[in-house]
Design a binder for these strands. Structure first.
Length: 543
DNA sequence: CATACTGGCA
């Protein structure tokens, strides 16, 4: 299906011709990369030259350099340079103050940003759309979207002019806190709404798995002649794959191509990922060939995605091949690439190779992040190398990588499985102390550990506590509890819990039935066991 | 000289 469809849309015109690895000529994709650091050093020394000139240069000369540093995201440096100007007695202007607001917003120092805003007003400057947009984006970034909306209403009432960016910022803010409905409402009040604004809400709706409304928005765009762009189509393709409507996704690919919108590296990577997840590795690899032919250079994501796909099919050798070959094609692996390798190798039981790669990261000054650590820690735990796992856990702190709920849960699971339940509970206390909230996985690990040690009462306490606090136990939680009750011989109680579970809308899976049926057989309750067996079959769970 | 929203891999 994939192949024929792809051929039809002519994305993959000459699949067979492509060699497994790419004929990339360096001359085609040569990149001139300057070191960011040296550029920023250069900017700072230029600034200092200005600062020490006999005659004070015009203020916008400082502004140019500061603007450059802000674009390079060097906010603390920009702030300190502005402070140096002040110390030298050079008066700053409206633009410099706006730059300063932007720096504080990016550093989440909103109170500083607003005090600079106060200064602007006091000096009699008129804040323009740029200043106000900066503040609204700062508020949104801080999760204070309501405050951003209030600010918007206030300044509009005072007669300030805003611009098209303002509404992009607010729509994005609303979408990112899950208020997509409000974002769409806002979108529809804007006469000059843009493609970008539609892209934002389409993305949110699909990630919330609400594809229905997306059709309406898309046709609305077409009617209003707001042209979907490459981002719109990539978002649609990705989103419809996400909600399981792969056919629809590829329909949008057709449409994109017939509208003469060329897929870019994002689009191709989305297709590669979708094909990999469908275990269509051959097609995924062919997409790589097609993009090269279309002069779109595969990047680190293209290769990493494909590697992850090979691991999904247990094709370690192919994954390694790509890992080794990508560098020769001018693309360096990044932290995620290494994490995919480490994850794939540990899952295949090749922990030592994973550790070697982990060391390799150290050697090349690449800092493993929390996900990398989590991957390796979990791999070590599951292969019984607990003390190595603890070493890594302690190393994280020194390398400025915060342990998260997954880190703690992996270690707690290892402790439970090695009969150190009390240490696991102690670790739970510690994680809370460090501001990390346990999630349903953590709770399940603990309950499971308690049931395994015969401490059913403790497990029931935690379970009840969960219900009291209004949390919804998931199917895993119920299976653990039902299994715990069964192994203590408390089948009637197990069945009562089973009914409660189903009543709450949490439907049994095949594991639930296996637990109950085998417990009933063990108790010689053959009739009941058979009833459950038929129920399982009628629910089509016997696959 | 300042704001600048959107899509992909663990």
């Amino acid at each position: 299906m994939w192949l024929s469809r792809s051929v039809r849309v002519s994305l993959l015109p000459s699949i067979a011709k492509f060699p497994p690895f790419l004929p990339i000529h360096n001359s085609l994709f040569c990149s001139h990369s300057h070191s960011q650091t040296s550029l920023h050093d250069e900017a700072v020394s230029q600034f200092n030259r200005l600062l020490h000139q006999r005659h004070v240069p015009p203020i916008f000369e400082f502004g140019k350099i500061l603007g450059f540093l802000v674009r390079m995201k060097r906010y603390p440096i920009a702030i300190s340079l502005i402070k140096q100007m002040e110390l030298k007695g050079i008066p700053n202007d409206f633009v410099i103050l706006s730059l300063l607001i932007n720096c504080f917003c990016h550093l989440h120092k909103l109170s500083f940003a607003f005090s600079i805003f106060g200064k602007i007003l006091k000096r009699g400057y008129h804040p323009n759309a740029i200043t106000l947009n900066t503040l609204m984006r700062g508020l949104c970034d801080n999760g204070e979207v309501k405050e951003a909306l209030i600010l918007h209403d206030k300044v509009v009432a005072l007669g300030f002019r805003l611009n098209e960016f303002t509404y992009g910022i607010l729509i994005n803010g609303l979408s990112k806190i899950g208020e997509t409905e409000a974002a769409i409402k806002l979108l529809r009040t804007i006469p000059g709404r843009s493609t970008v604004m539609y892209n934002i809400v389409i993305d949110s709706l699909l990630k919330e798995k609400q594809p229905k409304e997306v059709y309406d928005l898309y046709s609305e765009m077409v009617i209003k002649e707001i042209s979907p762009d490459v981002v719109t189509y990539s978002t649609l393709i990705y989103g419809f794959c996400l909600v399981g409507q792969v056919e629809v996704a590829f329909g949008f690919l057709d449409e994109m191509i017939s509208n003469n919108i060329r897929p870019d590296v994002y689009t191709y990577n989305i297709l590669i990922d979708a094909l990999c997840k469908e275990r269509k590795l051959k097609e995924a690899k062919n997409v790589l060939g097609v993009m090269v032919k279309a002069y779109v250079k595969p990047d680190v994501v293209s290769f990493s995605t494909l590697m992850d796909g090979y691991y999904l099919l247990n094709k370690v050798k192919n994954a390694k091949q790509i890992f080794n070959a990508m560098t020769h094609m001018g693309v360096s692996p990044d932290v995620r690439t290494y994490t995919i390798m480490i994850n794939g190798l540990t899952r295949k039981g090749r922990v030592n190779e994973a550790i070697n790669l982990f060391q390799e990261m150290h050697n090349s000054d690449m800092v493993p992040n929390t996900v990398t650590y989590n991957t390796l820690i979990d791999g070590l735990c599951k292969t019984g190398r607990i003390s190595n796992a603890w070493d890594l856990f302690h190393e994280m702190h020194g390398r400025n990588q915060q342990a998260d709920v997954i880190t703690y849960s992996s270690l707690m699971d290892a402790l439970c499985k090695n009969h150190h339940l009390d240490k696991a509970i102690e670790l739970l206390r510690k994680m809370r102390e460090n501001g990390v909230q346990p999630d349903m996985y953590t709770v399940n690990i603990l309950i499971h550990g308690m049931c395994r040690e015969g401490r059913l009462k403790n497990a029931q306490e935690i379970f009840q506590d969960l219900l009291n606090k209004g949390h919804n136990p998931n199917i895993c939680t119920y299976n653990i509890m039902i299994n715990g009750l069964c192994r203590e011989g408390l089948i009637d109680e197990a069945l009562i819990l089973w009914s409660k579970m189903e009543d709450s809308g949490c439907l049994s899976d095949v594991i639930t039935f296996e637990i109950i049926i085998s417990a009933l057989f063990k108790k010689d309750e053959t009739e009941k066991a058979e009833k459950f067996l038929y129920e399982m079959i009628s629910r089509d769970l016997l696959k």
